[in-house]
Design a protein around this nucleic acid. Sequence first.
DNA 1: ACAATAACTTCCATAATATGGATTTATTGG
DNA 2: CCAATAAATCCATATTATGGAAGTTATTGT
Lengths: 259, 259
Amino acid sequence: MKKQSGAQALERGLAVLEAVAAAPPEGMRLTEIAEMCGLEQPTAHRLVAALERGGYLTRVGDTKRLRLGLKLFQLGATGADAGGLAAAARPALVRLAAASGDCMFLMARSGFDAVCLDRQDANYTIRSLTGHVGGATPLGLGPGSTTILAHLPEAERAEVLAANRERILALGHDVPSKADLAAIRKCGFCHEVNRSVAGIVGAAVPIMTPKGHPIAAIAIGATEARLPETRLLDVIATMKDEARKIEAIIASSRDGLLS
Amino acid sequence: MKKQSGAQALERGLAVLEAVAAAPPEGMRLTEIAEMCGLEQPTAHRLVAALERGGYLTRVGDTKRLRLGLKLFQLGATGADAGGLAAAARPALVRLAAASGDCMFLMARSGFDAVCLDRQDANYTIRSLTGHVGGATPLGLGPGSTTILAHLPEAERAEVLAANRERILALGHDVPSKADLAAIRKCGFCHEVNRSVAGIVGAAVPIMTPKGHPIAAIAIGATEARLPETRLLDVIATMKDEARKIEAIIASSRDGLLS
DNA sequence: ACAATAACTTCCATAATATGGATTTATTGG
DNA sequence: CCAATAAATCCATATTATGGAAGTTATTGT
């Protein structure tokens, strides 16, 4: 009994893209793709051919190996802005990075993940787990991500948690408890020490839509020494200020940018 | 008589993505998508639903309008590196931007287009036509793009020119002549004054694979005043040097990065 | 506020399309 | 150079996408 999606071929094609995206930079062989996606080899061949034709996949050098093509980069750059969010938040990030001297991230929600939309480092020290722009973590792993999760409405929160529990555990981390999330909601920020990486402190505040939906978060990454408890609250306060400014920009823009 | 692709549904789905990518940031309505892609409306609906499920499309705010989703940004960031090219070229770009004081671009070929992979500006003055990272122009429009075109093998060059002629004319620019391209091949760089934008000078040198295929170009954008003929050749010489260094890195990396 | 219109969603019989087993051709490795 | 493995191609089959029609839900105009 197959699933009743009505667009099997498209979904399979997208699955191929995601499989190749997850592969190492030497690329993937057709057979591997077929196996990874649970497709017969001729089927994979057809899908790959179509994706290649469109520039979504390219051959590695002169081999048969396949890798993501630049078309995705092109499209990705177009969608990157998330409807003005990145642009609206950029100045805030710059200010925060400069003021704190640490590394600031803009994380936005995408389905069950949070994606790093932008990043400003005052001095290139830290590469956090979600460090690189374009990187994604399951909602619930990492401060920015967890802040967004915490501020979702009850029902959605449960759904996301259920969906992500296994993924997070598989990555060797633990899943935030209900109490953790409630605490984050209460004080309006998330603070993590030594959670994803030893010696690294992370903290984040949410960016909410006028309707009270969390769409993104501003996160900070720093070493434990640089961000002691004493300084933390100051920094968080500044971050909240900036988050509010971004919210104001979002609210005032006539095209709802909110997701 | 339909085309014999063997993956109609996938191709249609990709067409939907590209249509939405070309749309303004307020997003697109289902009907518009259907019309733009030549699909019946229920068909478009099914494809859109699948793409939305995968995070490739999102609803704008709480409306029904559709816009590119962050999944594309995610995948795009993964593929952005073009197999090490961007990383290999980054230091060269930084050096060139610092040394020249102008704006440097890394353009890479993607099918019939050249995509801006990276950009370094010494001082934020110019926004060239292909300025933003992720932007694409048809091969034959803009210096970096034209340099790549010029260095393609005869047959491929003709094919690309035929494919792009209309597109370039439609954008209100003219298509490089055979003589233009031959000249670029001969002197190893492309120089354009007042071509795409008045008062702006562009120039570019190709980056070739060991097998003599152009995969990318380093381009410079500056105002006419900043880049007079006298300075031009110096700058070009430096750019050629850097291009050669990048070629060396590419050649020495065991995974062929070459496209 | 209500009607009229347009956009979106769902349904389903039909046929066009994707499917995958079998085969040929190319590539890789010993 | 030959064996083994992977990729490309073929094609009869039935699964899957298709699009007309009808039912809902927004949007627009009066």
